[in-house]
């Protein structure tokens, strides 16, 4: 694995919401096929980081490169200028994201949700789009729910439809923003199973989650963020079993039974 082949390269990313600096110079890379899990307390900037990668947020300084292309901003006559929306949209076709609140289109069936991207962005003909969508729904275990509306599906089912919808664009990278945090505990497993299968198939994934055992099993690397900066990173076995920073130790204590830890 040579450096130049990294799928995502983030260099010194800085982002503020007004006066509040949320990302304070974050740098890391994600190799092709690597599964990176981002852990951290709320407010640490994890979601914002993901939303920057797929250009849903702007950022004030730093670079993001996806598959060797610098995205989001260009040099316009010596000044840093934002990409026009059309160019950003093209990059978003290659970066899939699944949200904590699913965000399925309520006025469309599960199948139609998955068809949205292929039909209206990739401009595939309807029969092919339908076949592609049906196949993906099968893959996430919801082939029989194709004609159901999101309101009739459970949280876990909706989230799996959301994953299928993102996959329909055949992205190079999949981002997962706390996708099981809003689910009832017994529905979490069905979503994690789909995610693990994706990882085994070699998808490049950046996963923000609180599911520590999942992170240990599926992650190639753990990144721990706190207050807008990366505090520690490394292979799961090492980082989770013997954390070196005090903040990570504290964070892990809470998730390993000591729920009153402060």
């Amino acid at each position: 694995m040579t450096r130049a082949m990294a799928m995502i390269e983030i260099t010194d990313l800085r982002k503020s919401f007004g006066a509040n600096e949320v990302l304070k110079g974050v740098s890391f890379a994600v190799e092709r096929g690597e599964v990176v899990v981002v852990l951290g307390p709320s407010g640490s900037g994890k979601s914002t980081l993901l939303r920057c990668i797929n250009l849903l947020e702007d950022w004030q300084a730093g670079d993001i490169r996806i598959d060797s292309e610098t995205v989001g901003y260009f040099d316009g006559g010596g000044r840093r200028r934002a990409w026009p929306e059309a160019r950003a949209a093209k990059v978003r076709e290659q970066v899939g994201i699944v949200f904590q609140s699913f965000n399925l289109f309520p006025h469309r069936t599960a199948l139609e949700n998955v068809m949205m991207g292929p039909l209206h962005v990739r401009r595939i003909a309807k029969p092919q789009a339908r076949a592609l969508a049906a196949g993906l729904l099968e893959k996430v275990g919801l082939g029989d729910k194709a004609d159901q509306y999101p309101a009739t599906l459970s949280g876990g089912q909706q989230q799996r439809v959301a994953i299928a919808r993102a996959l329909a664009m055949q992205p190079k990278v999949m981002l997962f923003d706390e996708v099981t945090s809003a689910l009832d505990p017994e529905l979490v497993g069905e979503v994690l199973i789909v995610m693990r299968r994706l990882a085994e198939e070699g998808m490049t994934m950046v996963i923000v989650t609180h599911e520590i055992p999942f992170a240990r099993d599926v992650g190639d690397r753990i990144i721990f963020m706190d207050a807008g900066a990366i505090v520690e990173q490394g292979p799961p076995a090492q980082v989770l079993a013997s954390p070196s920073s005090a903040r990570l130790k504290l964070f892990l204590r809470r998730y390993q039974g000591d729920y009153l830890a402060v």
Partner: peptide
């Protein structure tokens, strides 16, 4: 956000 993320 979901629609934009699909590239729409």
């Amino acid at each position: 956000a979901a629609a934009k993320s699909l590239g729409m």
